[in-house]
Simulated assay, not measured.
Amino acid sequence: MRKLIESTFVTLDGVISDPHVWGPPYWDEEHNAYAAGLLFAADALLLGRETYEGFAEVWPSQPGDYADRINAMPKHVASTTLKEAGAWNGTLIEGDVATAVAELKRQPGKNILKFGTGRLDHTLIGNRLVDEFHFWIFPAVAGGGDRLLDGLDTTHLDLLGTTRFKSGIVVHTYGPK
């Protein structure tokens, strides 16, 4: 069975919004290599509407192997407001999201990579569908913005590993308890 892996950038004060504002000073070769490892170990993306739309604006114009990979991958998009997601290799998930994601995980293939956190996580975590969380903790304080996993019920996780970068980023990898 395929694994669903979530990769999310977060500040020391728990903020996930606007990583393009607080993240760039820390993006370096170690960061790029780790991100590429996650991406190239996957053959599909699972995205919520906001992440899908934001990525679709940026990635098609980016150069390089990472961009080529992310642009070519199929994207499964969970949204209650989009009517279609056919652009940028997107497929809108129809019907029950938990059932659809469980079916994606049963299909043969590599990992399914999910970027960002938001409303979709309530469904995924509530149905125990996320196999690994990669929380990239940046040594920055945003002071305000959307918070990591805001509004979820108490959820306990097991620490699977920690990766430290010279830039100060620490990636904590967790799995369901």
Rank of each mutant, 00 (worst) to 15 (best):
residue 114 K to W: 01
residue 114 K to N: 12
residue 97 V to E: 06
residue 108 P to N: 08
residue 106 R to N: 14
residue 54 G to M: 12
residue 66 Y to V: 15
residue 112 I to Y: 07
residue 109 G to Q: 08
residue 107 Q to R: 14
residue 47 L to P: 04
residue 52 Y to D: 03
residue 73 M to D: 06
residue 107 Q to V: 10
residue 68 D to G: 14
residue 106 R to Q: 15
residue 108 P to S: 01
residue 49 R to L: 04
residue 62 Q to L: 15
residue 48 G to F: 02
residue 88 W to H: 14
residue 101 V to R: 02
residue 91 T to V: 14
residue 49 R to M: 05
residue 53 E to I: 09
residue 113 L to V: 09
residue 82 L to N: 03
residue 91 T to R: 14
residue 68 D to F: 06
residue 45 L to N: 03
residue 83 K to S: 13
residue 71 N to P: 02
residue 96 D to Q: 07
residue 113 L to N: 00
residue 105 K to Q: 11
residue 100 A to Y: 08
residue 82 L to I: 07
residue 57 E to C: 13
residue 82 L to F: 07
residue 46 L to H: 04
residue 78 A to T: 09
residue 47 L to V: 10
residue 110 K to H: 09
residue 100 A to G: 09
residue 50 E to T: 14
residue 45 L to V: 12
residue 104 L to P: 04
residue 70 I to K: 07
residue 64 G to S: 04
residue 48 G to D: 04
residue 47 L to K: 01
residue 82 L to A: 04
residue 70 I to A: 13
residue 99 T to V: 15
residue 70 I to W: 05
residue 81 T to G: 06
residue 62 Q to T: 06
residue 60 P to F: 03
residue 55 F to N: 07
residue 99 T to K: 13
residue 49 R to F: 03
residue 73 M to G: 10
residue 49 R to T: 09
residue 55 F to W: 15
residue 60 P to Q: 04
residue 93 I to V: 13
residue 101 V to T: 00
residue 88 W to P: 13
residue 62 Q to H: 11
residue 102 A to H: 05
residue 99 T to F: 00
residue 97 V to N: 04
residue 74 P to L: 07
residue 84 E to C: 09
residue 96 D to N: 14
residue 96 D to M: 09
residue 81 T to E: 00
residue 65 D to K: 12
residue 53 E to N: 08
residue 86 G to D: 15
residue 69 R to T: 11
residue 98 A to I: 06
residue 51 T to W: 01
residue 113 L to C: 06
residue 83 K to F: 12
residue 84 E to S: 15
residue 109 G to H: 07
residue 45 L to T: 07
residue 101 V to A: 00
residue 50 E to C: 12
residue 54 G to P: 06
residue 90 G to S: 08
residue 52 Y to C: 03
residue 74 P to T: 00
residue 91 T to L: 11
residue 57 E to Q: 15
residue 96 D to T: 10
residue 67 A to D: 01
residue 102 A to Q: 07
residue 90 G to A: 08
